[in-house]
Each structure stands twice: as structure tokens, then as C-alpha cells.
Amino acid sequence: TSVDSEAPSPKSLKREDYRGSVHIPPQIVALSELEFKKAFLLLSYIPGQSLAEVITTDKIIEWKDLPMVAYEAAVWDRLGQKFCSQTDRKASLEWDSGKTHYYQCHVASDGSYTFKGPLLEHTGTHLHKVLGDENVLTVKFADVQKNSPTYSNDRYSTYKRIAKNGIMVGLRSYQFFVFKDGGKQEKGVQCYFIRTDSTTSNDLENPYIFSGKTINEARMHFMHVHTLPSLAKYMARFSLILSKTKKLDVDMTGINFKEIDDINCRDQNNNDVLDKNGKPRIHSDGTGYIS
């Protein structure tokens, strides 16, 4: 199944945010003990439902050590076929094939959301390769219509709140990191959230590259885009981390680097091409000319 062909489900997940909560349902604690792909699959099979209301802690623990194929079948038989359509089923024999696992979240205009996945793809983005598949959440926001009951003077206030507060997947928190305009091939804008905080025992026991880091510090791990002059250039440059180009191993010891002067862009009359501020455009300014 293509990552970009998934349509949002008409059902929406009730947001269950346990940050700062004294009482965490035992089902959520048990869920956090599962492999992430198992936990996410279970949540994707109960859209619009509260985990604590549809399954017992003992049943989650019983499923914990099942092979992925058997686990999916068990969760589908118990929950998926009750709350999802057949087209939403993620039956696969390739769970351990090495393919990239994409974890999707579709956000409705009222702020509720539905999980989809894991979806298996042959290629992953640079972001997936650096952080690991389970630490990247692909988020699509529904269009807000003017006649929508959630429409207001600030029609995107709900989405802004999600971008600020993040999205909870069990006891994991995912924060907005970067977005990409899908262009002609992919409709709409696709956002990427990354894992920041987590209180699961599995995560606390394993080191994570961005533990204790701010989003700004995490972004600077990839590039110092904050030095760019405008927000538009910032996001255009930063979205390069979403490239699916494969990395080639190159022996850098035999390569000599030489710093050269900027090369101005010239028109057919050999005159400098100027930008809107009257400054010469240069081939080394951004990736557009390089590409």
C-alpha cells in the first residue's frame, strides 16, 4: 500500500493525553511494553475508541510475545474487524523485511485524529534513517472548510494547538519538526513529527539521540538553517532531510576540496540575473540551481 494513497478514516481517535496525569490506565501501561509497531497497529485498529474500554490489560500482555503475523491476526479478529473496514487492515508477511515502516496520523478539523499503519515502503527519508522509523510520525491535516462548525476567525487555531502541544501515541510524545509540500504528485502538505518525550520503560532504558533536546537543538543536528534570511528559505532548505535519495559510501580521503568565489547566474546576454532585492543570483544559493 502506498504511503500517500491512504485516505483519512471517517472515524477519529479520541485524544488520550496522559502527560502530567496521576492515573494512567493499566491498558496504556501494558501497551507501552509492546514493540512500537505492535502498539501502533493496535491503536490503528480502534479508531474512535478508548483503549481502556475495548480491551483488558491481560489480553494485551497475552499478545505481547506473538510473532508479528500472528499478533496482527489476533488484534484484527478481536478489535479490527469490529471497528475498522476491511480496507483498513494491515495484514502483511513482510514485517521483518527491512522495509521502512511509516506511521501515519490523520488529523480532523476538530482536532481529533486517527492512526494509520504501519505502512511498509521500500525507501525511507533521511529523517527515518537517522532517527529510526518508530521515532517519526507522518501527519496529515484535513482541510478546514468555511462552512465547518470549527471555522472561526482563526480557522487553524486547533491545528496550531496541535503543532504546539504535539501528538501523544500511548506514552510517547511527538512534536512538529518539518513539513513538505507534496506538489503535483502528493496532494496537500505533509508534516513530520518526531518523538521527543517518552515515559515508557522501553524508551527510558534505551538511549535516544534527542533525549532532553529542544526541537531547535534537534533541527540543528541536521543543519544550521536558522542562519537563513527568511522562513521560506528555512523550511525549503530544511525539507531536504525528507529526501529519499540513497546515500553512497564515498572514500573522502582521496578528494580535495577547494573554496571558490560565487558564480553569478547570467542571462542569454551574459548579464547578471538579479533577485527582487537587486542582488545577483548565484549558483551556490540554495539547492535549486545545484539540482
Rank of each mutant, 00 (worst) to 15 (best):
N202V: 04
L66F: 05
V169H: 02
I60S: 01
P25C: 01
G288P: 04
N256P: 01
Q86E: 15
H128N: 15
K279L: 12
H224W: 10
R78C: 12
T100E: 08
P67H: 13
L171S: 03
C84G: 01
T158I: 15
D249I: 11
E134Q: 12
T199Y: 05
G170R: 03
T227I: 08
A163C: 13
V22R: 14
G20A: 03
V107P: 01
R78G: 03
Q175M: 11
D261W: 09
T100P: 06
Q81P: 02
D272N: 13
P118L: 07
D275H: 03
C265H: 08
N135H: 14
D275T: 01
T150I: 13
T199D: 06
T114I: 02
P229V: 02
T123M: 11
H224Q: 12
I55H: 02
S243L: 03
F238C: 01
T100K: 10
K213E: 04
I282A: 04
Y156H: 08
E134S: 11
D262I: 08
G212T: 06
S173F: 06
A163K: 13
I167N: 02
D58P: 08
K258M: 10
S12Q: 14
S97K: 00
P10F: 05
S12K: 13
N147T: 14
K38W: 00
N264V: 10
L204V: 04
T57Y: 05
S284I: 07
A73Y: 07
I46D: 03
D267H: 07
S85I: 12
C191G: 01
Q175V: 05
M220C: 12
P229Q: 02
G254V: 09
N153P: 10
K82A: 09
K244R: 14
L242I: 07
F238N: 00
G20K: 05
V178E: 02
T200M: 07
N270P: 05
G183I: 08
I46C: 03
K187D: 07
V3G: 13
K244M: 15
L131A: 03
Q27K: 02
L228M: 06
D133K: 05
G212H: 04
K184F: 00
F83R: 00
S157K: 14
K246V: 12
K246R: 14
G286N: 00
R19N: 02
T56G: 03
P47L: 09
S92M: 06
K146H: 07
E6R: 10
G212M: 06
E16W: 06
E33K: 13
S97D: 01
